[in-house]
Structure formats: C-alpha cells, structure tokens
Amino acid sequence: MIYEFNSFTLYFKVLFMSEQQQSLEDLQHIKKMMERSSRFISLSGLSGIAAGICALIGAWFAWNRLHRTQSETYDLVRIITTNGAEILDELFWIATYTFIGAFISAFFFTYLRSRKDRVPMFGKTTMRLLWNVVIPMAVGGIFLIRMMYNGEFELVAPGCLIFYGLALVNGSKYTLGEIRYLGYGMLALGIMNLFYVGYGLYFWAMGFGILHIAYGITMWMKYERNSN
C-alpha cells in the first residue's frame, strides 16, 4: 500500500518535472527565435580582436611618422601645422589603409561565424545593423572631413571616437547587446580627448586598439570558446 502510494507521487513528480522542463525549453526557444529573427548575432569576437590589432599597427606607423619629424613636441596639431601638408597626406593614407585592413579582417571572422551558425551573411538583420551603424559614421565622417578642409585638426581624433561610439550604441539594438558597452567606452575616451587635445593618437590607439581587443576577447570567451 505504502509502496503503491510512493510510486504514485513519484509518477506525478516526474510528470510535473518534465512539464516544467518543457516550459523552460519552450521559453528558450522563443528567446532564440526572437533574437535570430531581429538581431545579427553572428558578430564574432575575433573580428573585434583583428580590428583592434589593425588599429594598433596603424597607430604605430603614424607614431613613427610623427617622430621622424623630430619635432620637440608630441602635440599632433602643432606637428602638422609646422610640417605642412605632406605629413598630413601620409597620415591620411595610414588611416585609410588601417580602416580597410580592419574592415576586411573584421568581416572575415564574422563571415566564418555566420557560416558556422548557418545565418545568412546578408540577410535582413545584417542590413538593418549595417544601416544603423553607417548613419552616424557616415555623417561623422563627412563632418570631420569638412573640418579638416577648414584646417581644423584638433578635434579629428576625439571626433572619430565620438561618432564611432554613437554608431556602436545605435547598432547595439540590432546585434549582440554588449556592443553598447564598447560604444560607451569609445564615447568616454572621445570626450576625455576633447580636453587633452594633441594627444589624439594615444586616445585613438586606446579606443580603436585596446578597447576593441578587450571587447573581442570578452565576447569570444562568452559566446564562441565553448562552441568550438
């Protein structure tokens, strides 16, 4: 009799447990489907690391170029104004190659991950993410180029950090949400840089280099290490 009673309650416990398990799995499924259909979640942490390394290499080249001028000052703005347009041209190309290198390497790792996740690389979610990142970046880019034409170089480095930070915060709604914190980091550095004009290259290397790498490592550890 007692035995019968026990097996009866056990039966209900098992029934209830599996129902609970089922509910949990259903909720996880809902979350996954909502994310996959509205966010581009295949952004790889390795992309951040690669972009960061490119930025540091670019900053190193720029730093070397500035030091070859043998100016007594570290103040970028004063070096440019005393050394004229030639150095500006070279710095511009270093920046351009750095951007292209960072973009291609970042694209590469994210492409690999999207294939592994079997998420289309150019689906609706990717386009939505790109569009929302491009708007602040393109507007910022035009603004900064226009400023340089006016001979204003002081605020270019902080400007890059600030507009990029805004782009990341804006884009965070359409990809892994953590990228918002990378955006806040860029914004903080950009704003600090506004008050230490002339040290733009260091802030730039810190933001585009170190922050990217730190973010990339964190994201890789969190999402990708275990799935390999």
Binding site: H29, M34, S37, S38
Partner: peptide, 14 residues
C-alpha cells in the same frame, strides 16, 4: 508546437 512557436516569436519582434 516548436515551429508555430518559432513563427510567432519572429513575428512578435518584426
């Protein structure tokens, strides 16, 4: 059903 659940999830956020 998992598939109908998936369809509804996608439509809720788009």
């Amino acid at each position: 059903n998992r598939i109908r659940l998936g369809i509804m999830s996608a439509l809720m956020v788009n």
